[in-house]
Amino acid sequence: MNNFSIVSSLLDNDFYKFTMQNAVIKLFPLAKAKYEFINRGKHTFPKNFGYLLKENLKKMSLLKLSSEERIYLEKYCPYLDSSYLDFLNKYQYNPKEVNIYQKGKNIQMNIEGLWSRTILWEVPIMAIISELYYKLTGAKRISNKKITILTKEKLKKYERLKVQIGEYGTRRRYSYRVHKLVLKILMEYGYPFFIGSSNLHFSHIFSIKPIGTQGHEWIMFHAAKYGFDEADRIAMENWLNIYGGNLGIALSDTYTSSIFFKNFNKKLSSIFKGVRHDSGDPIFFAKETIQHYKKFQINPIRKKIIFSDNLNPYKVADISSFCKNKIIPIFGIGTNFTNDVGPPNMNIVIKMVQALPEKKWVSVVKLSNVKEKSTGKKNMIFLAKKTLHL
């Protein structure tokens, strides 16, 4: 058990963590952040879990960007400039930034340090927790042959629906090996509607362009620095300052979609290629988005919505049927690809809880379009809602 590394590449992470890291280094190099592990599913952890988790994080401190990985990034991600790649060349995980305590069957964990450094921890730690949990609880999964059949069946459904799909399943995957197997099948049988993976390491292995843009923490930090009202708008403007027209998908639900659309002015709506839906009723959101574009005389059929909220073939069928000839839907499918192998999925998250934009720590919140997905202290959630008149 102790010799096996669950995360064996610096790039085994979601692509948007690197695009955000690059932006943080350039715009907020001195900012600090705190993150917390939230056990939404109230999972109970076996004895020694905390110890084995720490051992895995120690091994991560040995990971370094290889020269082949750098060449891959230069070729497939040209908007990540050489100064950032030089930073990544020197970057190593520091396990001292992560505190883990196990009390009986509960795990508590927080991460703290420079935002430009700590931003990379969340996804690999979640992948490690997931894989360790299934290993230590003796969870039995279906065979590789069955995984192959199941994944091919899903692909046939997506092909019939004539939709574009991507793979977003790193953080709650069953295991590294299952993830790799699923991607192999997607590569072999998903052409041309499979558009890529959000995992940078597998994108490198399979020589494909990674997909993804930014996460909620980007906007949550902006709220800590500039206030809730303007966080969405300033976060998008800052994104454009770094990436121009590249990586042009705007995240719509950090402070609910209604607040997002108020911030998504004509200029931003024109420049960004589309928006990402991550919570709430997807059809209602599609209607809102189409109306929003029409208000600015922008033809929605040229714009995209990336749907990424807990998808499966049935949901994709409903959403794509509604969007047909109205707007371009793209589907980022996570756990339904990388953890649909028998045992129930884990319901865990790691979220930014505080930010230090300048001199003092500020508690951050995410409101989301559904109550269950909101995070942050109750008093701050109350303040955010009051400020935004929600």
Rank of each mutant, 00 (worst) to 15 (best):
Y168P: 00
R141E: 09
Y226V: 12
K184D: 14
P210I: 06
A317D: 15
N345P: 04
Y134Q: 11
G166R: 02
S203Q: 07
T254V: 15
L53Q: 05
L88T: 09
I119G: 00
K360P: 01
I71G: 12
K157F: 09
K378D: 11
N238D: 15
N89A: 07
F194T: 05
E372G: 08
G215C: 07
L85W: 12
V98E: 00
A355C: 09
L390Y: 15
F272Q: 04
F221L: 08
H216L: 10
E167K: 00
L268P: 05
E55H: 11
F264Q: 02
N89K: 13
T151K: 08
M1H: 11
L114R: 04
Y72N: 04
K34P: 02
E188S: 13
N144I: 07
K209N: 13
P192I: 07
A223G: 09
V341P: 02
E74I: 15
I328D: 06
F228V: 03
I25D: 04
K304E: 12
E159G: 07
A139H: 02
H201W: 08
E131N: 06
D232Q: 11
K360C: 04
P192R: 14
A223K: 01
M352I: 12
E237R: 14
P357S: 01
G138P: 02
G280L: 09
I129A: 09
N39Q: 13
I71V: 13
K152Y: 03
I328T: 12
R177C: 08
F307K: 05
K287I: 13
I119S: 02
K58S: 02
F193C: 06
Y189E: 14
L52I: 01
F296R: 09
K385L: 06
T19M: 03
R70Q: 14
I242K: 08
I328L: 11
S321I: 12
A235F: 09
S82D: 14
K103H: 14
M109F: 05
I208W: 08
K135S: 11
S374D: 08
F382K: 15
H292T: 04
G274D: 03
K371V: 15
N2L: 08
F337M: 00
R173A: 12
E112R: 07
W121T: 03
R276Q: 15
R302L: 14
I290D: 10
L247R: 15
I125Q: 05
I348E: 06
F382T: 14
K180V: 13
S197A: 01
K154H: 07
M236T: 04
I301V: 13
T137Y: 06
L10C: 05
R171D: 04
T170N: 05
E159L: 06
N325P: 01
V341D: 01
R233G: 01
